[in-house]
């Protein structure tokens, strides 16, 4: 009668032990992040997962992990993986969750199935099933990480556009990185607001940190300059590197209507002149 036992029956009979074995297996992993997940959480998560797993293999159909039997399991696994990705688990840690289950299952099967040939066949089937579940894990894990990256990209574009008041009536805005449409919007808004706030009359847009100026970036710059002018302020673009200047010319972009300067200090000097300010070195006479 023992020879007729299915994988489901074997595992279900030993569900408690299997759970314990699996947990032990997971905790043995030296990479287990107790800082990221508590033992109690892990215990509950694993218990829930095992229940769903057993329900999915009830009919002994291990071959097709895409069938609707496995929907709930796949969904749950995806949820766990994406959660781990968001919380900073490594791919190894995430993968070990499902791979360690394999070990625990094999252990149970070895005990329950005495016929070696049958044991071999069943182990192969389980092996294949767990491997395809692992694929789900990795796919969702990567998706989770991509979401994190996109979120960070958006955050960076928000924080990396500081408008600095360098002098009375003079604002500077160093732009670092790629200037895309959404970024330009942020840049333009914060610049215009700061102009109103500080009643500045000159704004310096420094692009030394922009890797390339293509026609879209140029257009964004031109728009920003026109908008500043409409606010009654003059806009200077500084930090045009030689290689960028050459590229702009070949591309055919006409920046002749725009006040450009090679460096931020040139732009600042120009701004001082415009505002009739003078920066001088102290002489000994005035010092004494």
């Amino acid at each position: 009668m023992a020879a007729k036992i299915t994988v489901y029956q074997a595992l279900n009979k030993n569900a408690k032990k299997l759970h314990e074995d699996w947990l032990t297996q997971q905790m043995q992993d030296e990479g287990l992040r107790e800082d990221l997940i508590s033992n109690e959480e892990l215990r509950l998560e694993s218990e829930e997962f095992l229940k769903t797993f057993l329900a999915a293999i009830k009919d002994d159909l291990l071959e097709d992990s895409n069938s609707s039997n496995f929907d709930k399991l796949n969904e749950m696994l995806a949820g766990i993986s994406i959660n781990r990705a968001r919380h900073g688990f490594s791919p190894r840690e995430t993968g070990y969750y499902i791979f360690s289950l394999k070990q625990a299952i094999f252990k149970t099967l070895e005990k329950e199935i005495t016929d070696l040939k049958k044991l071999y066949t069943e182990i192969l089937r389980v092996n294949k099933l767990i491997d395809s579940l692992a694929t789900v894990t990795f796919e969702t894990f990567i998706r989770g990480r991509e979401e994190v990256i996109i979120r960070q990209t958006n955050e960076i574009s928000d924080i990396s556009t500081p408008v600095i008041q360098v002098w009375d009536n003079i604002l500077a805005l160093p732009i670092i990185g790629t200037l895309d449409s959404s970024r330009t919007q942020v840049v333009m808004e914060s610049l215009l607001m700061k102009i109103v706030e500080t009643e500045s009359t000159i704004a310096i847009l420094d692009i030394s940190g922009v890797p390339a100026v293509d026609s879209l970036v140029a257009q964004h710059l031109i728009k920003t300059v026109s908008a500043t002018r409409l606010m009654g302020a003059e806009c200077i673009i500084s930090g045009i590197r030689p290689e960028i200047a050459q590229t702009i010319v070949h591309l055919g972009i006409d920046l002749s209507g725009i006040n450009t300067k090679a460096s931020l200090s040139h732009a600042l000097r120009f701004a001082f002149q415009t505002l009739r300010l003078e920066v001088r070195k102290k002489t000994d006479k005035t010092a004494s």
């Binding site: 390339a212 026609s215 960028i244 050459q246 590229t247």
Partner: peptide, 10 residues
């Protein structure tokens, strides 16, 4: 390189 990058970008 800048020229190539700019063309690619377009």
């Amino acid at each position: 390189k800048t020229k190539l990058l700019t063309a690619a970008s377009e």
